[in-house]
Simulated assay, not measured.
Amino acid sequence: MTLVLLFAVTLLFSAILVRFIIKAAHRFSWYDHIDERKVHTGQVPRLGGVAFIPAYLIVIIILTLTGIWKEQVTGSFVLVLVAMVFIVVFGIWDDFKPLRAQYKALVQLVAAILVVAAGYRFSARNRSSRPMPP
């Protein structure tokens, strides 16, 4: 039941935030610039997909504060959320003021270190990422 509630509320918040962000993108001319690497030919608003992260975080905060989702919020979970927010913030920054490749790599490295510190391991053998048992 909790997962269904999480999905439904996140979907609702995402739909609302996507509309808001796309309207803001049109209003402030936040468009993706066309270059040789892009497939699109017209003005495509930036940041539409960014709405999913705040929607997810809002739902997690609401469910945690109301006690509905208390047992799932652990230190490991918080580290993964911090890594996610870190990637999103620098992704937004990169959309408006492109970062050099080494800075992007550094941001990704820091986020990966946070995820590993949370107890997740990545293996090419079984292609899974699961928290290590306590």
Rank of each mutant, 00 (worst) to 15 (best):
L6E: 03
A124L: 13
L47Q: 03
Y103V: 08
M132I: 13
V44P: 00
P54Y: 04
V50T: 11
I53E: 11
A118P: 12
S129I: 07
I68D: 10
I16P: 11
P133T: 09
L5H: 05
F96D: 10
T2E: 09
L99G: 08
F122P: 03
I87G: 08
V116K: 05
G91Q: 02
F77L: 11
A8N: 08
R100N: 14
L5K: 07
P54D: 07
L47Y: 05
I60M: 11
V107L: 10
G48Y: 01
V4H: 06
I21N: 01
T66Q: 09
A51K: 02
P134E: 08
E71N: 14
P98D: 05
V116G: 15
A117D: 08
L109D: 10
S129M: 15
M1T: 03
A8F: 04
S128I: 05
H40P: 05
V78G: 04
V9Y: 05
V39W: 14
Y31R: 03
S128P: 03
H26W: 09
L57N: 10
K23C: 09
V89F: 14
V85W: 04
I87N: 07
I34V: 15
E71H: 09
A24I: 07
T2F: 07
A117F: 07
F77C: 10
V115I: 11
A117G: 09
L5D: 05
F77Q: 06
L6T: 01
W30P: 00
S29G: 05
G91L: 00
L109P: 13
S29M: 08
Q102Y: 12
L63S: 05
G91A: 03
F13H: 04
S76Y: 02
G119K: 00
R100K: 15
A55T: 00
A112C: 08
F86G: 03
M132G: 05
L106T: 06
G48I: 04
F90W: 10
V73F: 06
V115H: 05
